[in-house]
Amino acid sequence: MKLIVGLGNPGKKYEDTRHNVGFHVIDQCAKNLNITLNQEKWKGLFGYETIGGEKVFLLKPLTYMNLSGEAVRPLIDFYKIEIDNVLVVYDDLDLPPGKIRLRQKGGHGGHNGIKSMLAHLGTENFKRIRVGIGRPEPGIAVANYVLSTFPPSEKQDVHESVQHAANACESWLSKDFLNVMNSFN
C-alpha cells in the first residue's frame, strides 16, 4: 500500500493560496489516477484505488496546515501503511514557482505542516515532494504570503509544477523513489 498526502488548508477561503499547492497536486493525482476523494474520516478527506495490484491512497488533511499529522497518523495506523510507502507533497518558500524537488527524508525546514508530520509520525524518514512558491518581498510577513494567491505572472509556472509533481507521484507507484528523484529533480 502507498499513501500520497498533499498538505494544505481546507475551505474555500484558502483554496487558491500558495499554501495549498499540496492539495492541488492531490487533485491532479486523483484526476490522473481515477481516484475519487470521497471518504471523510480521521480529520482527512481521502480515497483509494488498486493500481498495479497495490492499494494507492490519496489524502488531504482537513486539520489546517499546522496539524496535518493528526490526519495522517490514524490512516497509516488503520491501514498498516509502512512509513517507507508515504509521500508528502507541500509548498516550499525556498524554491521558485514552477520548480519541484524530491527528497527521501529530512527535517522540517521551518514548515509547520512538516513539523506536525514529524511529531505524529515520529520519524523524518518519509518521502517528500516540495513544490516551489517563492519567497515574499521584504516587508511581507511569511504567514500573509503563504495565504496569498499567485499573481497571474506565476500561474502558468505553478500549474506546470503541479502537473510535474503529480507525474512524479504517479511514477513512484511503479518505480523506486531514487529513480523517480533522478528523473524529476
Results as ranks from 00 to 15, higher is better:
T17F: 00
T17Y: 06
T17V: 11
H19A: 09
N20P: 04
V21P: 03
V21N: 04
V21T: 08
G22S: 10
G22W: 03
F23S: 01
F23A: 01
D27I: 01
Q28F: 05
A30K: 02
A30D: 05
N32W: 03
L33G: 11
N34F: 04
L37I: 03
E40W: 00
K41S: 14
K41M: 13
G44L: 11
G44A: 02
L45H: 06
F46L: 13
F46T: 00
G47R: 11
E49R: 15
T50K: 15
I51N: 09
G53V: 06
G53I: 10
G53D: 11
E54S: 14
E54N: 15
E54W: 07
F57E: 02
L58N: 04
L58R: 09
L58C: 07
L59Q: 09
K60D: 09
K60I: 03
K60H: 03
L62G: 08
L62Y: 01
Y64S: 06
M65Y: 08
M65S: 02
N66Q: 06
G69S: 05
E70R: 14
E70S: 10
E70G: 00
E70C: 02
A71P: 08
R73L: 15
R73S: 14
P74E: 10
I76Q: 15
I76A: 11
D77G: 00
D77S: 10
F78E: 14
F78L: 14
Y79A: 14
Y79E: 14
K80G: 13
I81C: 14
I83W: 00
I83Q: 06
V86A: 00
L87A: 14
V88H: 02
V88I: 14
V89Q: 07
D91F: 11
L93I: 12
L95Q: 10
L95W: 02
L95N: 13
P97W: 02
P97H: 04
G98R: 07
K99Y: 08
I100N: 10
R101I: 00
L102W: 08
R103M: 09
R103F: 06
Q104C: 04
Q104T: 15
K105A: 15
K105R: 14
G106D: 11
G106R: 12
H108G: 13
